[in-house]
């Protein structure tokens, strides 16, 4: 937790990756979510197109988050090696990184949701008008999209951090220390 504070700018960049990914996902997923809530989901070319968009967004999001988390963990291999030399348990190191990742995942996803949903809000206001577009965004829809965004963002970040952290923690310290970044 402390290291998030001190690595503020580095975390911001990693966080921004998650943030934008989730914002994009939230925005592109919203039409489906809204029609799901209004029970107006009808199969057809329109739905297929939207589904495609969501799948693509999810893909971009996954790759983006994976990439930034992998980078941010692997550039700290030496640090992991050092901590192991100082007597840190493997589980402690993994736990440390997971807590950090989880925190970052949730905060960035929440931010991403705010941006994404704000975009939905604006677009609907402009295209459908206040009455038709904005008032139909019920609390259920808002809560649903928030929940989905944060869950997906958190889970992806967690998985992306777990893999390299676990690998690094199980290396012999000498090997982790040799790693050049």
């Amino acid at each position: 937790m402390n290291s998030l504070k001190i690595r503020f700018w580095r975390s911001m960049i990693t966080g921004a990756g998650i943030f934008l990914g989730i914002a994009f996902l939230c925005f592109s997923g919203s039409p489906i979510l809204i029609s799901l809530f209004q029970h107006t989901l009808v199969p057809g070319p329109d739905l297929n197109r939207q589904l495609w968009l969501v799948v693509m967004a999810l893909l971009v999001c996954t790759v983006g988050i994976m990439n930034s988390m992998l980078m941010s963990v692997s550039e700290r291999f030496r640090e992991i090696g050092t901590m192991k030399c100082l007597g840190a348990l493997n589980s402690l190191i993994v736990r440390l990184f997971l807590i950090e990742a989880l925190f970052m995942g949730f905060v960035s996803s929440f931010g991403g949701w705010v941006l994404g949903f704000f975009a939905v809000f604006v677009v609907r206001w402009i295209t459908l008008g206040w009455a038709g577009g904005v008032t139909s965004l019920t609390p259920g829809i808002i809560a649903g999209s928030l929940l989905l965004s944060v869950l997906i963002g958190g889970a992806l970040t967690l998985i992306a951090a777990l893999l390299p952290a676990q690998r690094a923690a199980q290396m012999p310290p000498a090997a982790a220390l040799r790693t050049e970044v």
Binding site: I6, L89, Q170
Partner: peptide, 26 residues
């Protein structure tokens, strides 16, 4: 095992490196 090794590194051995290996943000 890994846990006992960590205990050994923690309590019995102190390490000093050529490259210092301090944690830069602390």
């Amino acid at each position: 095992d890994a846990g006992e090794l960590a205990y050994l590194r923690c309590h019995t051995i102190g390490y000093i490196f050529q490259t210092f290996n301090l944690i830069t943000v602390m």
